[in-house]
Design a protein around this nucleic acid. Sequence first.
DNA 1: CGCGAACTACGAAGACCTTCGTTGACATCT
DNA 2: AGATGTCAACGAAGGTCTTCGTAGTTCGCG
Lengths: 128, 128
Amino acid sequence: MSRAKLPRPTDAELAILRVLWDRGASTVREVHETLQDGSGYTTVLKTMQIMTEKGLVMRDEAQRAHVYSARVPRENTQRQLVTDLVDRVFGGSPARLALQALSTKKTSPEELAELRQLLDSLEKESES
Amino acid sequence: MSRAKLPRPTDAELAILRVLWDRGASTVREVHETLQDGSGYTTVLKTMQIMTEKGLVMRDEAQRAHVYSARVPRENTQRQLVTDLVDRVFGGSPARLALQALSTKKTSPEELAELRQLLDSLEKESES
DNA sequence: CGCGAACTACGAAGACCTTCGTTGACATCT
DNA sequence: AGATGTCAACGAAGGTCTTCGTAGTTCGCG
C-alpha cells in the first residue's frame, strides 16, 4: 500500500492547492481569505477535509486551527494534468499542445529563451 | 437558442467529439463502435443527445439513424482547454505549460522543427 | 463562571455526470 | 401478418462535486 494513485484534482481542489503551493502551509481561514471567490468558509473547510481523505493535502492538528499543506508537489500535478490533456485532446503529442499553448498568448523573451534552450537539448538528444 | 458560451466538455463528451472530429459526421452506432470502451449503446446515445442540447454537436434527423457532427471545431476546443489549464494551473503562462509538456515525452524532429519555427516568429514579433 | 468568537465535524441538499433498462416506433424478412 | 432487429426517447439510479446550515468544542475575556 505504499501509494494509491492520486485522483485528478477537481477545480475547487486545484484552486486550494494553488494557494497552498504559493503560501505554503496554511490554515483554512488563510486559504479562504486568499481565495477571493464567493465561497463560504465551511465550503473551503469541507473541501480541504475531503482533500485530506484523498491524500491531496496533509493536516497538522497540533494547533486548534489545523494547518494544511499540499502533499502533492506542484510539478507533479502539472505533469499529471498535462499528460492527461495530451492524451485526451492532442492524440498523445505534447508538441501539439505546446504549439497550441504558444499560439494563444504572448510570451516573454525570457520564456522564449528558456524554450529555445529546451528545444536545443531535445534536438541534441534525438541526434544521439 | 445557441448558447453564448460553450461549456467545457466532460471526459465522455470529449471522447465522442474526438470520434466525430476524426470520422466526420457519424451515427450513434458508428461512434459507439469506434469507441472501444465498455460503454453501452444507450449510454453513448444519451450522451450525444445531451451534447446536442448543450450545442456541442448537431444532429441531422433526415434518416432514421440520426447523423451527428461536431459543432465545435477541434482547434477551438483545444484552445479552450489549453487556456483553461494555463489559467488554472500555470499561473497564466502558456510558456510554462509548453515547457512542462515538452519535458514529459519525446518529440519527433519534425515537431521540434515546427516549434523552432514558431519560436522564431514569436521572437521576431516581440522585437518589433 | 458565562459569553462570544473561532474552529471542526457532520449531514444534507442540489447540480451534474455516467450508466443502463425499458418502451415504443419503424423497418425488414419470411 | 408476424417475428426479429434497429433505433430514439425517456426516466431513474448511483456516483461525484460543491455548497452551506447547524451543532458541538475550545479559547479568551470580562
